[in-house]
Design a protein around this nucleic acid. Structure first.
Lengths: 153, 153
DNA sequence: CTAGAACCTCAACTAATGTTGAGGTCAATC
DNA sequence: GATTGACCTCAACATTAGTTGAGGTTCTAG
């Protein structure tokens, strides 16, 4: 393997990682402070990222799009041996969890939409009878519902 | 109309509104500070809510469940003549907007889920080729996508 | 070798959505 | 008429996910 300067093996500066990942440098600092990513340093203390950090940052972004808080994403990354960037196998395992989360969220929103449809035109908004007002009746019982995404656990 | 003490016309204290609406008193204070609800005061400066505030608070909660920030909910309420609590007609108009928002959110999540399904097993997470990493390709073009919910406008 | 771009740290700030606590008042009951 | 629970205000704190700025250093191109 020839080690060409500027080759695919050269580590990335924070500016490069930022541009390629679409994540601001300040956010990358933030992720590092919170243990989501790591970097080596040059003699002059500047960060140098291995190229697999691109995948790791991509993983973080995707997980965020699914709706997961950084804390959960961090736990998922921590659950990998050596805290390594997800490999294909890891990704398969983790993404099925993401998939379930997505399914739940979609189901919860669809449920809410059904309720909304039932209520449009009735205008009741009655605390007693309107299912939109009493999500605990059904959503609460199933553990789903939009609140799930605003609460611990 | 007989004005029975304890009848359906008696205004509600903050404790009563809190219990009936399921919204904490501190949150009701907060909503008031932010112009989402209003209250009359007793001679002793305690809040007294008209019973229609129940509907108004219910409206706020439901809108939050749809995913709207309080700012937007406030704007919707402000858009009503006299800043009144939504009537049946108002509710119909506003709820169709909520309905559209819900539809968009569901569609965005389903899109993400499709992408996720396409990626499970490939493990690529390549910034160049993976649609999960480049939502701008399609989601961006359609104006949908989960990012929509994290950005102004 | 030097100018300017890129980078460094640390602290403070933002925004949304509230909660908690201190210190004091009101209202209903015994 | 005193007690007690409900209520009042105001300020500070909590959480998530970062951004901004000051003040200083390093890297790279000419």
């Amino acid at each position: 393997m020839p080690q060409v300067p500027g080759s695919a093996h050269r580590p990335l500066s924070i500016g490069e990682l930022s541009e390629r990942s679409g994540v601001s440098a300040s956010a990358l600092h933030f992720y590092e402070r919170n243990g989501l990513i790591t970097a080596e340093r040059t003699a002059g203390n500047q960060r140098r990222y291995r190229r697999e950090m691109l995948r790791r940052v991509a993983f973080i972004k995707t997980s965020q799009r699914v709706g997961l808080p950084l804390k959960d994403i961090r736990e998922a990354l921590d659950s990998l041996p050596d805290g390594r960037t997800p490999t294909k196998r890891d990704w398969t395992r983790l993404s099925s969890r993401w998939r379930r989360e997505l399914d739940e969220r979609i189901a919860a929103l669809q449920h809410l939409r059904n309720d909304l449809d039932g209520c449009i035109g009735c205008g009741c908004l009655s605390l007693k009878s309107c299912t939109l007002q009493n999500p605990a009746d059904e959503l609460g019982a199933t553990g789903a519902g939009a609140q799930r995404w605003n609460q611990p656990g």
